[in-house]
Design a protein around this nucleic acid. Sequence first.
DNA 1: CTGTTAGCGCTTTCAG
DNA 2: CTGAAAGCGCTAACAG
Lengths: 342, 342
Amino acid sequence: MRRRRQRQDKVTLSDVAQKAGVSAITVSRALREPDKVSPQLRDAILKVVEEMGYVPDLAARALASKNSGLVGVLSPGLTTHAFLALIRGIEDRVRPSDLRIQYASSDSDTEDQLRQLRFFMSQNPAGLIHVGQTGDPAIEDLLRRAPCPVVEIMDISRQPTDMAIGIDHRLAAETATRHLIEKGYRRIAMLGGAWDLRARRRLEGFKAVLEAAGLFDPALVLSVDSSSSVGLGSHLLDRLVTEAPDADAAFCHNDDVALGALFECQRRGLAVPTDFGICGFNDLEYAGFAFPSITSIRVPRYEIGYRAVDMIIRASGSGTYPAKIVDLGYQLVARGSTARQT
Amino acid sequence: MRRRRQRQDKVTLSDVAQKAGVSAITVSRALREPDKVSPQLRDAILKVVEEMGYVPDLAARALASKNSGLVGVLSPGLTTHAFLALIRGIEDRVRPSDLRIQYASSDSDTEDQLRQLRFFMSQNPAGLIHVGQTGDPAIEDLLRRAPCPVVEIMDISRQPTDMAIGIDHRLAAETATRHLIEKGYRRIAMLGGAWDLRARRRLEGFKAVLEAAGLFDPALVLSVDSSSSVGLGSHLLDRLVTEAPDADAAFCHNDDVALGALFECQRRGLAVPTDFGICGFNDLEYAGFAFPSITSIRVPRYEIGYRAVDMIIRASGSGTYPAKIVDLGYQLVARGSTARQT
DNA sequence: CTGTTAGCGCTTTCAG
DNA sequence: CTGAAAGCGCTAACAG
């Protein structure tokens, strides 16, 4: 049983100043702009700071300086493997700056995204990174009103509020689909989860390529409105085999779905890639280790995160927010799951 | 190119008050404690708030009220599948409260954790949730000093600063190991990543059970100091087969490692579970869908998150922070990967 | 139920 | 290089 630290415990800037025999503002400077304080005074002050265990109050700082230094990252389903690299990129770029990151994981639900966005707005953010573009007008409107640069990441097929960085999901899907055709698959399905913006773009690309080849069949597009997972992949492959026994390949919403599909094939004795080809999306770490290894589309996630923060930093300098779209490109990684002899 | 919203754009409480013909505090109350304002006035005020697009300034609020309402969640590697359910639990409990959550993903590195902790401290947090117990004294010290309740989650084998909720990882490992023995495996390996606290506890349990059975062999404990992943599982199984060809089962650091081991077995034609048994940890979604499905230890992650927040809320009411350890228990989920006929 | 008065802890001027 | 004064936007505490 530990007692609550009382309010008077809190060490403030003036406490430190008093003990160090200087004014508060000098302590403040010693902490934030060491160059502007004489070395000896600075050292003395920092020593007192250490001794007293002074911790700056960010709320007070934000209020006085009108600068929270906070960058909000809003994403539905923050916690998927796909975000690991993204977050690493973000943090690596933030570390040497004086910004700080706050993540919010919203539901893909519009109402929840609005809630989280308003919450960020309440904190005078220095920037906003938005992942889950839905095209919802209320969200767009709120983003446009944001008094800070906004970077929409992952997909760049949409005109962004300010800036966007990522890849063109439609083109990526076209590449994947073309690959499956080249490998000799003809009855190609698309297995997916909820149709968010990126998924819709991919469907467009998928459809366009198959139609051009005279191979598109809407009955081969299967999805359910739930989040993508291994279980979903398993389930959808099951449905596919029942509804369209002649299907011979699947372009999956992501690698989890692809993995589920792969397992289900194994369970049914469907040989991958001979009887059935599988292509995932994202190129997560495990894709290369699966057996057979899974063909996927590699997305430069680390770089997207890193550069998104970079764009915010640059935009903060100027007084305006440049309209800008950065295409980082994707890469097809052909592996065992589509390595059929042609 | 969008112009920066100017400072004077910002609508403040008094702007709203003025337009509504009341005082600032009344607007403040209408927003936070609607009951204390007459219905008609309240409606009028809320209408003006809406019209003017007023957004409260959380920094000012936190400063004035000495209450940030912020709960910090610090975890190394926030972004693993294992955290999905945890975060859902946290958010579900937070939603109806007036708290807000801020996640920080630290490296498992002590220095980085300290950095992030100090950062939380700078914000007068209402509570702290800590995942990556390392037993590091500097971190413990900082947590002890925190002027708010602290809940350490996932493992409960350690005396916490205030409170802890989770499972006993040592016991869980004992159960898993016993299961492998019961299934007739005798040369049981342990495959792991970095030896964080939880992993060490599991090793203890693993070792204790095998020693009691006269089966422990240190040569079968393989790990590398890198984060656990499918690739690692694959790699470690490869090493295991080389160094100890007679090994016949593995208790893995988590399901990712188990999956990697499973793939590697398939690649080598090692039949699972007949030739080799595999047990994972966490019981992630995909464990049940793999082929063969993967035996694992189910950890009540959603509930841990939900109740951790709950503990903070309750502790905030009282003036003291109860020393408390909550054991939520785990469950062995026996599946195909260890289903050897005995 | 509503308003007045004082700050919260820090930083921004503007002077020395 | 250092300091004094003022105030960021909001809410506690007390009045009415």
